[in-house]
Structures are given as structure tokens and as C-alpha cells.
């Protein structure tokens, strides 16, 4: 099922929360909706989910506006996580799946399968309030996929998860992609988006900043970045005239070469000043493109 968003707008009082956003998410692909906090991602998603109506624009499912039954074909993991804490886990999953039109016996098999996949089988008959935060988050994901939706909308799915759970969830999402589901992934963690998404849309202040396939975007920005891993004074690059836009990570640095500067010149400059472990010429990371574009837009 293809999801098309055409020039949607939404205003809250004097704030234009979403201003002419368009995107097309296709089956078997993960589409990334990226942006800083308050960019309008959640409002866009709520409009796609038909929770709120756009002031202008259209949202089409397989080329047609949403019909009442279409909600059953979409799975949703909202950013605001919440479950009925007093319910027994199995009943809770049955209830949410039944609201999406799931049949009881069939749904139970799927519940058992997903609980096993996320190591939650022993919690099946326990109350939701007994689950840890990470477990609750995995349950929330199960809720969004139990009814086998054609479209899956995941709003910040990895926020707050430990590395093991993050990996389990990432694999599950990639499996669903392989099954031909249309997946819309909203996140502000660029590394995740870069690893998982085929196409992305970066928005800020409700407007489109950048869109297209991850590869095309990265190549558009050329191979003028270097990644340097080293021991020593990291300020050396801040003072260096051969680089601009230096982003420091805990153990490495990503820097853009200044106009006219070559990687060889930079390498020559660094030798003897720091103890180099890695020096690689790369296309800029999505993270760097994201920050550059947001700064440019503002």
C-alpha cells in the first residue's frame, strides 16, 4: 500500500506547525521523516493517522483518500507511549488488536509469536504495570504490528531503548520491510535513519528542508569530508584553516575540507601533531548534512 502526502498544512493559533509537507512512501521501503524536536514530525504523523485533520492538502492511501476501514491497515507506534497499566498483557494485546479488526484465535497466535520474539512470553499473564520501561516499549511495538498492517508508522521507535532491545527492534522493522510493508520512520537519531532508510525527508519549523534517497543526498554533498580518529588535542582541527564545520564525537571527528584544501594537505598538516589511528575520506554523514541544512535554513 502506497502512502502519499501532498502539500499538507496545519496551523495551531498563530503557529504554522506544518507548512506544505509532501512525501511518498512505497511498499518494501523505509521512509525516514527527520527533523529536530518541534519540527512538525508528530503533527504530520497525526494527520497521516487521521487523528487530526489537515487544514490543506491531501493524504492518499493507494491513491485514494482515507476511508474508515483504512485505519485497520495502518500500524502506529506513537511517540507518546502509553498502555493500560491495570490490564493483563495478553488481554491488552487482544483488545488493541480487536480494535484493528483482528479475529481472536488468529490474533492469539500472533501475540504468542511476537512475545516470544521479544522474550516477553513469561509476562503474558502479568499486569502491564509490572513491566519495565523497555518491556513496555517493546509491547507498544507489538501493538502496532499485531494486526499485520500494510503501513507501519513508527514515531521515534528507538528512543529510550537499551542496545540489545534497539537491535531486536531494528531487525523486526527490517523483517517487516522485507515482507513488503510500507514503513514511515520518524526519528531525530540520524545514524539510525542512515542505516535503515532508503529515502528521507528532513523538515524544520513545519517546512521541507531536504528530501530524496539517502545515497543521492549524500552524493549530492560530495566526498569532501574526512573522518579522523586520533589521540591528542582535538582543538587542533578547530584552529586548522584546511577544514570547516568540524563535528566532534567522543572518540573521533568529522570535518569538511575547506574550499581548495585537499585530503593530502590535511594529512600532512596533522602528521606529527597528533597520533593518528584512522584517516578516511568519506561522503558527509546524514548527521552532518542534517545539521548543515538546518543551520542554513535558519
Amino acid at each position: 500500500m502506497e502512502l502519499q502526502v501532498l502539500e499538507i498544512k496545519k496551523r495551531y493559533g498563530s503557529v504554522q506547525a506544518v507548512d506544505g509537507i509532501s512525501l511518498t512512501a512505497s511498499p518494501g521501503k523505509i521512509y525516514g521523516l527527520l527533523g529536530p524536536n518541534g519540527a512538525g514530525k508528530t503533527t504530520t504523523i497525526r494527520m497521516i493517522m487521521n487523528i487530526i485533520a489537515p487544514d490543506e492538502g491531501q493524504i492518499l492511501f493507494d491513491g485514494k483518500p482515507i476511508r474508515p476501514g483504512d485505519k485497520n491497515r495502518i500500524g502506529y507506534l506513537p511517540e507518546e507511549r502509553g498502555l493500560y497499566r491495570k490490564m493483563v498483557l495478553n488481554e491488552l494485546l487482544q483488545y488493541f488488536a480487536s480494535l484493528k479488526g483482528g479475529r481472536r484465535g488468529y490474533i492469539q497466535d500472533r501475540i504468542d509469536g511476537w512475545l516470544e520474539r521479544f522474550d516477553l512470553s513469561e509476562w503474558k499473564m502479568r499486569k502491564v504495570e509490572e513491566l519495565s520501561k523497555g518491556m513496555s516499549q517493546k509491547v507498544q511495538f507489538i501493538v502496532s504490528v499485531l494486526h499485520e498492517p500494510d503501513i507501519l508508522v513508527l514515531d521515534e521507535p528507538f528512543a529510550g531503548l537499551d542496545p540489545v532491545s534497539t537491535e531486536a527492534l531494528r531487525k523486526a522493522v527490517l523483517d517487516l520491510k522485507k515482507q513488503g510493508k510500507t514503513i514511515l520512520l520518524s526519528t531525530h537519531i540520524m545514524e539510525q535513519a542512515e542505516r535503515m532508510c532508503g529515502e528521507i525527508l528532513i523538515i524544520d519549523s513545519g517546512r521541507e528542508v531536504l528530501c530524496g534517497s539517502v545515497e543521492a543526498i549524500k552524493s549530492r554533498f560530495g566526498k569532501n569530508s574526512v573522518i579522523i580518529e586520533f589521540d591528542g588535542d582535538s582543538d587542533i582541527l578547530q584552529r586548522c584553516e584546511l577544514t570547516t564545520d568540524v563535528i566532534s564525537y567522543p572518540r573521533w571527528i568529522e570535518a569538511e575540507l575547506a574550499p581548495g584544501a585537499t585530503p593530502d594537505a590535511l594529512l600532512g598538516y596533522l602528521v606529527g601533531k597528533i597520533s593518528l589511528k584512522r584517516f578516511e575520506v568519506v561522503t558527509p554523514s546524514l548527521h552532518k548534512i542534517f545539521i548543515d541544512q538546518l543551520e542554513k535554513g535558519r
Binding site: R46, M49, I51, K71, N72, I74, Y76, P78, E80, R81, G82, L83, Y84, R85, F96, L99, K100, Q140, V143
Partner: peptide, 12 residues
């Protein structure tokens, strides 16, 4: 407050 409203409204 339990933040269940959004998941509910995505279904009903």
C-alpha cells in the same frame, strides 16, 4: 496522563 489516547485514536 497514561498517554493511551493516541494509540486509541489511531484505531477508533
Amino acid at each position: 496522563t497514561a498517554k493511551t489516547v493516541e494509540i486509541m485514536l489511531s484505531s477508533v
